[in-house]
Amino acid sequence: MKFSQVVTLCISLAVTPMLLASPANKYDDLKLSLGKTLGIEITSLTESQIPGLLQAVTSHGILYVSPDGSKLVQGTMYDLNDGMKNLTEAAMAEPRLKELKPFEDKMLVYKAKNEKHVVTVFTDITCGYCRKLHSQMQQYNDLGITVRYMAYPRAGVPSKVADEMQSIWCSKEPLKAMDDAKAGKSVPLASCNADIGGQYKLGVSFGISGTPSMILEDGTMIPGYLPPQQLNKALSSLN
C-alpha cells in the first residue's frame, strides 16, 4: 500500500467515529423528551423566527418551546414588518405537501380536463358547505381546477360517518358513491384499506378543525368554502 493511501485510510478511520458521534440535530434529545412528555409525534424541532424560541412541527400543528424544554407556547406567530404575515401557517406549508404525498393513491380525484391547478380538500359527507362545494364540482373543473378529496369525518374515527366514508372510498365506483353521498343518498357498505383513520389523523396534524378545508398547491391552507371563481383567483395569485 502506498504511503498516501495509508494516510488517507488513517484520516478516514479517525474522522468516522466523530461523524457517528455527532447528532443529526442539536435538539434531537429535546425533541425526543418533548414527544414523550406531550404524548404526541414531533416531526421537527428547529429555531423559530423569534430568538430564544424553538419551533416544533408536531402531529397537532406547530408549537413553540423554550430551549430548555420547560415552557410551551401554543398560538399563531405574525410578522408585523411583513403585512401581518402568518409565520405559523407559512411554516406548515412545506410539511403539509410532504405529508400528503403518501396519500395520493388514496385520494378521490375529480380531474379537470384542462388542468391548471390542483387542490386537496379535506371533506365530510354530512357537512353543508362540503355538499355545496361538491354541487359546483363541474364549475371548478371547467376553470381547470382538479379537486382531490381526503376524508375528514368530523365525528372522528371510529364513527358512523367514518364507516360511511370508508364505504365510499372502497366502492367499485368511488366517485359515483361520493356523488350519491353528497346528494344525501345511501351508499352500500364496503371495506378495504382506505385508511380513513390515517387521513383523518393527517388532517388533525394540519390543524384542521372543520370542513371543507383546502390545501393549495403551495401548501397554504384555506379553512372553509370558496366559490369556484374566488378559489381560481386565489390559486392564480400563487403563480
Rank of each mutant, 00 (worst) to 15 (best):
K201G: 09
I11H: 05
C170G: 10
D142M: 07
K111P: 05
L231Q: 07
D179E: 08
A151F: 01
E217F: 14
D179H: 11
K116M: 04
A56G: 12
G83D: 13
K176M: 03
L202E: 05
K111I: 08
S59M: 09
L45E: 00
I62F: 01
P95W: 05
K132C: 03
H60F: 04
M221V: 15
T126W: 10
S171V: 06
T220V: 10
K106N: 14
Q55M: 13
L20M: 13
Y129H: 03
N239M: 11
K98P: 04
D142W: 02
S4P: 04
Q229M: 12
M221K: 08
L189F: 10
C130E: 07
A162L: 06
S205A: 15
G198I: 13
P67V: 10
G83K: 10
Y149H: 02
I208H: 13
G224Q: 12
A21S: 13
Q74E: 12
K201W: 01
L108K: 04
C10M: 12
S186M: 10
P153N: 12
L100R: 08
S159Q: 10
Q166E: 15
L45R: 00
P158A: 06
L9E: 12
R148C: 14
I11V: 15
L53T: 00
A93H: 14
N193Y: 11
V109R: 05
E41H: 11
N81A: 06
N239C: 05
P188C: 10
Q55C: 06
L19S: 09
K36F: 05
V6I: 08
V204N: 00
T126P: 02
L30V: 01
K176N: 13
L38N: 04
W169R: 06
D28S: 14
T126S: 13
P188Y: 09
L63D: 05
L34W: 09
S191H: 11
R131F: 07
K101D: 15
E173V: 11
A183C: 04
A93Q: 15
G35D: 08
